[in-house]
Simulated assay, not measured.
Amino acid sequence: MKTYRLEFTQKIPVSLDVAWDFFSSPQNLSEITPESMTFDVTSPIKKDEKMYPGMIITYKVAPLLGVKLNWMTEITHVMDKEYFIDEQRFGPFAFWHHNHHFEEIEGGVLMHDILHYAIGFGFIGTIANEIMVAKKVKEIFNFRYKKVEELFGTVEYATIF
């Protein structure tokens, strides 16, 4: 099974407290996900509840072709105002490990994501990744990039790798 790695970086012109407060809240996930994915958090999460190690989050999501799937992730690690990691327990991927890092920098926060994922299904999964999955994952992160700019403003220096 082939594993893929993607990285995304964005500078956000807000304080570390503001960035952490927004991104560590599971309730905000649907706001930064394309509407076409019909992303719904189905876990009974309280309004102001923040992520913590061991937290299980369930969703209904349509990642490809409008087919609704159940997805379950676990927040495996949290270092307050530095990073958190979510890992898929059940869902559309054979493997999903997503690091979210936050660093206070001059003028705001540098947000850096490192994503490792695998499709499964051997050669067919490799072809599926090349044809549509990698493109779709990049589209999701590009959407998030634009949505974060919309919510928090833009800066001169910002990149997506």
Rank of each mutant, 00 (worst) to 15 (best):
M1E: 13
M1G: 14
T3A: 02
L6Y: 06
E7A: 08
E7R: 14
F8Q: 06
T9P: 00
T9W: 01
T9E: 15
T9N: 13
Q10C: 04
K11D: 11
K11C: 09
V14C: 07
S15E: 07
L16C: 09
L16T: 12
D17N: 12
F22G: 11
F23V: 15
S24N: 14
S24P: 07
S24F: 05
S25H: 12
P26Y: 09
P26T: 12
N28Q: 11
N28V: 09
S30H: 11
S30Y: 01
T33A: 04
P34R: 03
S36Q: 09
M37K: 07
F39D: 03
F39M: 14
F39T: 10
D40W: 01
T42C: 03
T42H: 04
S43N: 02
K47F: 09
K47A: 12
E49R: 11
E49C: 04
E49M: 14
K50V: 05
K50I: 12
M51Q: 02
G54L: 07
G54F: 09
G54Y: 06
M55C: 01
I56C: 00
K60H: 13
A62G: 11
A62W: 00
P63R: 00
L64T: 04
L64S: 06
L65D: 03
L65Q: 04
G66L: 04
G66Y: 02
V67A: 05
K68A: 06
L69F: 01
M72G: 00
M72R: 10
E74Y: 01
I75D: 00
I75W: 01
I75G: 00
T76R: 00
V78M: 08
M79E: 15
D80E: 15
K81F: 00
Y83F: 08
Y83M: 09
Y83K: 09
F84K: 02
Q88C: 01
P92C: 03
A94M: 04
F95R: 13
W96D: 02
H97P: 01
H97M: 04
H97S: 04
H97R: 10
F102D: 05
E103H: 07
E104M: 05
G108R: 02
G108V: 05
V109D: 08
V109Y: 07
H112F: 08
H112N: 08
L115T: 03
H116V: 02
H116F: 13
H116W: 12
Y117N: 04
G120T: 06
F121V: 09
F121D: 08
F123I: 15
I124Y: 10
G125H: 05
G125A: 08
G125C: 08
T126A: 14
M132H: 01
V133W: 01
A134S: 13
A134E: 11
A134Q: 13
K135L: 10
K135N: 14
K136G: 04
K136M: 11
K138S: 11
E139D: 15
E139V: 11
N142W: 06
N142D: 15
R144Q: 10
K146I: 06
K146F: 05
E149C: 12
E149G: 05
G153K: 07
V155I: 15
V155S: 15
V155G: 14
E156G: 13
E156A: 08
Y157R: 14
Y157V: 14
T159G: 14
F161V: 12
F161A: 11
F161G: 13
